[in-house]
């Protein structure tokens, strides 16, 4: 029982981190039909900028909880700069091309950003571990957890609800949904599709950077952190069904729990637990758990 609780808690903590990143990925795919490999690079940039911002804030005497604001501002800043830049001046050149071509464009972008990050921040590690202690420790199922981990679960829930609410309950959200279902139809109804694309892409980038920014306190920020995020967040949205928010949430929880169960019960299987789950889901649900019915074009 205690073990089950531990697995549940560990799985949820991992899932919360994963969900924030995967949510951005699935949103960008839903609206722009781009599976963005550079998402991982923006995660890394988020972490780097957060590290720099927290240090900057601390030098102004704004420590403690201000660090959280610094991290949030870092994610917003990354999104506002990189989102429009990448969407308008790069991706837009390739719209209408095959999905795979767009995927490769983002791969090229990933390679470029990987070295750009190194040029800006060098290879030395950055630390912002202070915020990790902000919420103290919490005893749960006779184990110590860090309060920050629970805060991350809260952050994931807030992000999920906010995005869901914005899409389904606001007017501009419904415009975005309309673009998701049919770009041509929305355009002919007078929707400014270009603007929707840019907003959705920027929001996706924001979530990637947010994931990176709030992970920064738990890791040493250095080259190479982008790669591991990409595949695992791909797995999450594939399991959940591409472009689906509920899917990203369920996918993250499934991946988190599968990984936690593997670590506690069968550590030697941790390496491919995620891929096994992904293959298994696809074998039974070829388009993921939350597949959207698509019109058959005859």
């Amino acid at each position: 029982m205690q073990l089950a609780l531990t697995i549940l808690m560990d799985g949820l903590i991992y899932a919360s981190w994963l969900f924030v990143v995967a949510l951005g990925l699935t949103l960008v795919f839903g609206v722009l039909k781009i599976l963005n490999i550079a998402h991982g690079s923006l995660y890394a940039i988020g972490a780097y900028v957060a590290a720099s911002m927290v240090t900057l804030f601390a030098s102004w005497g704004l420590g403690g909880h201000f660090a959280l604001i610094a991290m949030l501002l870092a994610a917003i800043g990354v999104a506002l700069v990189m989102g429009p830049l990448m969407e308008r001046y790069l991706l837009r050149l390739f719209y209408g091309r095959d999905e795979v071509v767009l995927l490769l464009v983002t791969y090229a972008l990933f390679l470029i950003l990987e070295d750009a990050v190194k040029l800006i921040w060098g290879v030395n590690p950055y630390y912002v571990s202070e915020p990790y202690q902000l919420f103290g420790n919490v005893a749960f199922a006779s184990l110590f957890y860090v309060g920050y981990d629970f805060a991350l679960i809260g952050l994931a829930v807030v992000c999920g609800i906010a995005v869901w609410f914005a899409l389904n309950r606001t007017r501009s959200g419904k415009v975005v949904l309309a673009v998701i279902f049919s770009r041509e139809m929305s355009a002919s109804m007078g929707v400014n599709v270009d603007k929707v694309h840019m907003i959705a892409f920027t929001l996706g980038i924001f979530l990637a950077a947010l994931g990176g920014a709030f992970t920064a306190p738990m890791i040493s920020v250095q080259p190479g952190i982008s790669v591991s995020v990409i595949i695992v967040s791909f797995a999450v949205i594939i399991i959940g069904g591409l472009g689906s928010i509920e899917g990203a949430a369920i996918g993250a929880v499934i991946v988190g729990l599968a990984r936690a169960a593997a670590v506690h019960l069968m550590p030697e299987a941790e390496l491919f637990s995620i891929y096994l789950v992904m293959a298994a889901v696809l074998i039974f649900r070829p388009e993921g758990l939350f597949q959207r019915a698509a019109a058959r074009k005859i």
């Binding site: 599976l35 791909f234 491919f272 293959a279 074998i283 388009e287």
Partner: peptide
């Protein structure tokens, strides 16, 4: 053969990554 679009791509990716994991072990 019954998979379409990106899901075909991702299933093949998953299979190759499982093989990668097995080889490493």
């Amino acid at each position: 053969a019954r998979y379409t679009g990106i899901f075909f791509g991702m299933l093949t990716l998953a299979l190759s990554m499982v093989a990668y994991g097995v080889l490493i072990k």
